[in-house]
Amino acid sequence: MEIVVCVKHIPDPNIPPEMDGHRLKREGVQGVLDPGDEFGVEAGLQLKEQLGGNVTLVSMGPAPAMDAIKRGLSMGADQGVLISDDALEGADALVTARVLAAAIGRNQFDLVVAGVESTDGYTGTMPSTLAEFLGVPQVTFAKTIECSDGRVKINRQTADGYHVVECDLPALITVTAGVNEPRYASFKGIMAAKKKPVETLSLSDLGLSGDEVAVKQSIVELAAAEERKAGEVVQDDGAGAARIADFLQEAKVI
């Protein structure tokens, strides 16, 4: 089974973000493999352990995005593909999907795995756009995954429960946090990762150019939102509950 996992390199979510003009500042910011994509890598690895095959990681991003691929390789993936090109700076979900589709579509695949949404951008639509470009169905918001001969079955999260969705391969799947417990990279895994193949591609390698990958949507203004003011903060000296009850009464809910 040929499994492709999309992995995004993002600024460390534990460091408060800063703006650089109209964009999130990325230079000089420590990057990590998106924690949401660790679930995707783990899902890929478990399916490989069960059914055999290969796990290929694919990422689009500047050179440091290699770290995200290395991390996934340390967890146990077999190989990586990094698409890096200056022309892709500021790429939106549509452009990202087009580029990833071009890279993934070069080879035959059974399953493409992505996160439901990225931790930094939380656009949440890239995978669906990618599925359309690849011409495959999508099984999304997976809470559980079962895969057998040529078919995938998931519990798809819904607002008030879940649906069971089944689909023939090839397909694209998105995974929620909690679909599995991502493994840690072992020392052996980290050493092995150094020898695993990673292909680096530019846009011209993919036969993409100019208009196809131009970012068209533009930010025209940034402004601070009206802040909610902090109200009164009081220590509970035994009268806290009564204070809240007063508050509820003033708000006419009791």
């Binding site: 979900a93 890239m126 669906s128 756009t129």
Partner: peptide
């Protein structure tokens, strides 16, 4: 969300989220 994502590829329009 799933439908809009696919439509973005079909129409070539950038889908604006959130």
């Amino acid at each position: 969300r799933d439908i809009a994502g696919r439509l973005s590829a079909k129409t070539g329009s950038t889908l604006m989220s959130n």
